[in-house]
Write a protein that binds this DNA or RNA. Structure first.
Lengths: 135, 135
DNA sequence: GATATACACTTGATTTCTGAAAGGATGTAG
DNA sequence: CTACATCCTTTCAGAAATCAAGTGTATATC
């Protein structure tokens, strides 16, 4: 399904998704046009889902990075899920998981105060175990 | 430091980092040239760290996505850290954290068999608690 | 109040890239 | 052998990026 050239293309685009097709082509020993048509095929197959940005969270004003292991208090998950949906500015990812908790919630906050406020509200819906990222 | 236009630029580039500068400019009511120079400044400031790709892990052949809470067996972290470094194909991210564990390791594997093999080797250096992502 | 300076943006010209069309090489099936 | 499909290259017109002025505005300086 994916040959070595496709893999190289994906690797290079992961390093720098704004690289010109011509230059990408040189890296994988193809013309820019052939490279572009491979990229289009990878998009159509759904292997490539999109092109995005790596930003510096601290310089964006987010100084606190946390993981929350979520334990729902009862069988109704919807209140928690809609709480998460309504706080998407803080939420990086929310995974349903197997293990101790029901969900693993990754978040970012400008300050500890905002984290604290978030936790107070979160605790209305679920219990949690907090893990703060140091590095 | 960052004005509303910069924030919009970052938002649009997060949605699609391959958007032409001209088109991005239209979205933020600037010419392509002015937009490009703002983007260059954001890069120089380190706010923008790079441009990358969103891929579909399943279609890339990775069917297992896991988080590992790591508990080092002793005070020496180096053996674990070099083990992680030597398995970067599986490792997505490795965070030093405060909380129960010392590290939070996010990984992906093609199969449960490879996960199992990884865990066997990992267990030589540290103890862990496994969390598998369902969705 | 006049002048200098810095900054951000626009305009216009040149270079570079992209995307479409046509054609060539290779492999497969009838 | 022929038809067909796939993947690549070449060519070329149009689009975008880049570079070099030039304009406008705010702030500082005398």
């Amino acid at each position: 399904m994916l040959d070595e050239t496709d893999r190289q293309i994906i690797e290079e685009l992961t390093k720098n998704s704004r690289i010109p097709m011509k230059e990408l082509g040189e890296k994988v020993h193809l013309t820019g046009q052939a490279t572009a048509s491979r990229v289009i095929k990878l998009e159509e197959k759904g292997v490539i889902e999109g092109y995005t940005l790596k930003t510096n969270d601290k310089k964006m004003g987010y100084h606190v990075h946390a993981f929350l292991e979520i334990f729902t208090k009862n069988l109704h998950h919807k209140p928690y899920l809609s709480f998460v949906a309504s706080h998407h500015a803080y939420v990086i990812r929310n995974y349903k998981v197997s293990g101790q908790g029901c969900y693993l919630l990754e978040c970012k906050f400008p300050t500890n105060e905002e984290l604290d406020q978030f936790l107070l509200e979160l605790n209305l819906y679920v219990n949690y175990k907090l893990t703060i990222v140091i590095r």
